[in-house]
Design a protein around this nucleic acid. Structure first.
Lengths: 299, 299
DNA sequence: TTTCCTTACGCCTATCGTAAGCATA
DNA sequence: TATGCTTACGATAGGCGTAAGGAAA
């Protein structure tokens, strides 16, 4: 089979239509150039150039081969440049895992920022539960995970990307809906739609701890796993609840959201990204770099 | 810059993920294979493979490069096969010149037969006057010309592709339109729409000679260059005329076509293709070959 | 200790450059 | 006769294989 150096020889001769000039362009002498062209023709199995002692021209096969020869050189060039861009993290792929809960706001925002910072990087998104994400990270099947804290696995690195407050959610018809803001004490003895301790453990514990620290005892009348289920049950009048502030993106008719004045800490809901310590994907390194330099707005 | 042999090495290693097995597949030993991969990585400017003593895997840059490496090998392969097909005349291009008069029937028929016999050959069709076609043939700008005889230029080869009779064309209202066939004598002293001696010299001389040999003297009332102009003037009642038999494809309302019984020779209208003696386009050679083996039906 | 990639080194093939050959205008 | 591609031939660089080295499970 032929070599790319022979292709470069052929293209030079085909463009100059003169072995001497082509050889000069290639920084070599004519005789070895002639020989390389002969070897190429032998490999292709047909004459590519017609040469008399006075004129050099392409044969029909040579004309066709020239087109593909140029394509070969172009592809060889772009292959190198592409690989370098991937190595620099400017191109390539990032496999991102996310939980259902982060798909509303965090995933779109991350995708948006990636497109903006690293437009040539392709994102592969997969919804997975937190534990599966961490395992996939360690196995190298995932580059980046969007999960709730805490993440203490050795070999994984956590980086918070957003903290936000909890806000109260009430039926629009509720008495407190008249007020601009609520206090945790307002939940004392109230019917409360609670997070499931199994399927929504993060929010369950966050809510329970928050209430416990404030010495508030709501009546947990339901346990559900999804935020939109909370909204539905609150709207149906089964009780009140608390949700992350970002939930207001939903504009759910029949429920109102109210600030909580005495929340401690003030932004208890946290989400972050996790990467493997020794992740070798340069695009991930660059993304983290860019995000660190220009941290996400945390509204 | 790297070489295709290094690309083959890389693809083998990337597929086996094992230098030893890849080397076996490439019929070589591991050490030179390692060296080639190192050289390739140096040329690309980034690591393509991660190797510990126990495991070999692709880096992100290597994954991207593998895709393009495979494309390179595929393109190298098809470049060879394509060039060979062009050399065999099975693919490539044929530049065909034709006169306006042959565009009605001969060009479509030739195109049709090319598509059928040599489907991978691209036809480049250019309408040109006969003289320009012959010059372009000699200059190598045209592979094949469709022209009327005679062609006697040295270096050009003529091959008849169709002979056909002249037929009479009359207004539908003409008295002779009642008859199944006419004789040349019927044109004696008749108003006759004649071909232009300049722009349609072939048909002018053919018609004039035919009449002269039959000792018939029509009254040449008009001189026009295009067959469809003849039909239009005949329809308008300005006279009668003769046209090649193929003209019946037009189904021109208001005119009728009638056989000529005493035509001598019986098929005087001829068209042929001309190629340069030393045309080096294998597709042309193959086309002529195929056409000679399976000659066109001459209806 | 075994596996397997890398480094070291000698041999040899293949390419290069110089010089001569040869065809064409 | 001059131009320019090809053939011939000696020098050399680069690739291959064998042997030794080194890291990880």
């Amino acid at each position: 089979m032929f070599e790319l150096s022979q292709i470069r020889c052929f293209v030079a001769v085909a463009e100059e239509l003169h072995f001497g000039k082509a050889a000069a362009r290639l920084n070599m002498t004519q005789p070895p150039l002639s020989r390389q062209i002969q070897l190429l023709e032998h490999a292709v199995g047909t004459a590519l150039l017609f040469r008399s002692s006075r004129v050099v021209e392409l044969t029909p096969a040579g004309r066709r081969f020239l087109i593909e020869a140029r394509a070969l050189l172009r592809l060889a060039q772009t292959a190198v440049l592409d690989a370098r861009r991937v190595a620099q993290g400017k191109a390539g792929e990032i496999a991102i895992g996310f939980t259902a809960g982060s798909s509303y706001r965090d995933v779109p925002e991350l995708v948006e920022r990636c497109r903006e910072l690293l437009p040539e990087v392709t994102l592969r998104l997969r919804e997975m539960v937190s534990q599966a994400q961490l395992e996939a990270l360690l196995a190298g099947r995932l580059d980046l995970a969007l999960v709730r804290p805490p993440v203490n696995q050795p070999g994984l690195r956590w980086r918070s990307i957003r903290r936000e407050p909890l806000i109260a959610v009430l039926p629009a018809s509720h008495a407190y809906a008249q007020r601009d803001a609520l206090r945790l004490q307002d939940f004392d003895d109230a019917d409360f739609v609670m997070y499931s301790p199994d399927e929504a453990r993060y929010f369950y514990e966050l809510t329970a701890d928050t209430m416990r620290r404030a010495c508030v005892r709501p009546r947990y009348v339901q346990y559900v796993s999804q935020i939109h289920t909370i909204l539905a049950l609150v709207r149906a009048g089964l009780g009140v609840s608390v949700v992350p502030a970002g939930t207001t993106v939903f504009h759910y008719e029949g429920v109102v959201f109210r600030e909580l004045l005495d929340l401690e800490p003030s932004d208890p809901v946290e989400i972050g990204m996790v990467v493997k310590d020794d992740n070798d994907n340069p695009a991930v390194a660059r993304l983290l770099d860019e995000l660190a330099r220009m941290p996400a707005p945390t509204p």
